[in-house]
Design a protein around this nucleic acid. Structure first.
Lengths: 102, 102
DNA sequence: TTTATTCATAACCAACCAGATATGGATCTC
DNA sequence: GAGATCCATATCTGGTTGGTTATGAATAAA
């Protein structure tokens, strides 16, 4: 309950990185090129962010030809849900049903 | 749905800071002195962290005499729950009941 | 009225981080 | 095969940040 959410919190703390994850969550599968276009940062920056997200398990890479397709892995958010379930006593009664689902 | 979770994610991204919030979530009301003891860092560091948490709305300060008592404000986690509700399509069906509770 | 305690702020420092440009490998296209 | 495109990695840099010590204001205790 301690080290698990660390990488997740850190990964999602950066706005640019979180925006990438958000786009992937809605947009299905997207290439680095597509993600770079409306990201506001350079392509290497996007690649680096995707690497961090991938390391945290939040996205998944599929290699086809010269381009890499990324997809979101929302299941990786589970430790965050666990963390909030555990540490918010106020909501505990309402969240504990959710907890055993995960 | 964009700027709201930013301060929360950033606040909770630091392990020391998150540990303080966790302790307050379980330990009720604690003074800076008490929080400093088992934090592993100096008192000014604790004060700074508490200031950040307070700025994010995650803790609340009560001033009595020369000591400051802090309490956790788990309701402040609401935007995080909203964020996860919105951006995790996988859990959407299970979380949307929770969403309208908040 | 001293003396001690509690806390916050200031000033400083080392480490980390997010961004850039440069580059090269791999793969399509012509 | 030649050129163009896509992506990742390497390197560098400015800004952020989490930590420290120093200090002072405010309050409690002696």
């Amino acid at each position: 309950m301690k080290t698990a959410p660390n990488a997740l919190f850190k990964s999602l703390a950066d706005p640019t990185r979180r925006a990438l994850f958000e786009r992937l969550s809605r947009g299905g599968e997207l290439t680095v090129r597509m993600l770079t276009e409306k990201s506001g940062v350079s392509q290497p920056a996007v690649s680096k962010h995707l690497g961090i997200l991938r390391h945290a398990g939040l996205v998944r890479a599929r290699y086809k030809g010269r381009q890499t397709h990324y997809t979101a892995q929302p299941r990786a958010l589970a430790p965050l849900v666990d963390w909030m379930t555990y540490y918010s006593r106020f909501w505990h009664d309402r969240l504990d049903k959710l907890e055993h689902l995960l």
